[in-house]
């Protein structure tokens, strides 16, 4: 019984997060401006991170947690660098 409840909830979560990723991806492709794309990339990183966490829960594996954490760190650094780029047009001053 409890396995059924959790499996259904996790399945729903996986579908919802994947749909969210697709929605964010359409905005990422559509733009219209650079800041929309950067914000889309940041949101996509976080959605993918949460999808990894949910998948890890479903498979009962620790490795997804590590991957999710690395993803969060890289997403942050990438977005900050891109935002800086939007500001000045140069990453390194």
């Amino acid at each position: 019984m409890s396995a059924l409840i959790i499996t259904v909830a996790l399945g729903y979560a996986q579908i919802a997060l994947a749909t969210a990723g697709i929605l964010v991806g359409t905005r990422l492709l559509k733009g219209p401006r650079a800041q929309d794309r950067v914000l889309g990339l940041d949101t996509l990183y976080i959605t993918a991170m949460l999808l990894f966490l949910v998948t890890g829960m479903r498979l009962g594996s620790m490795f997804f947690f590590e991957a999710a954490m690395v993803m969060g760190v890289i997403g942050f650094v990438a977005t900050v660098a891109l935002a800086k780029f939007l500001f000045r047009g140069e990453v390194i001053e």
Binding site: L23, R27, L50
Partner: peptide
């Protein structure tokens, strides 16, 4: 146990629904 399963399912569904709504708004 079933009560914990319901609690876990509630939080998972809440979290993923909010992410989906955020993405919907973003698009």
């Amino acid at each position: 146990p079933v009560w914990l399963a319901v609690l876990i399912a509630f939080f998972v569904v809440l979290g993923s629904t909010l992410v989906l709504l955020g993405a919907l708004g973003f698009a």
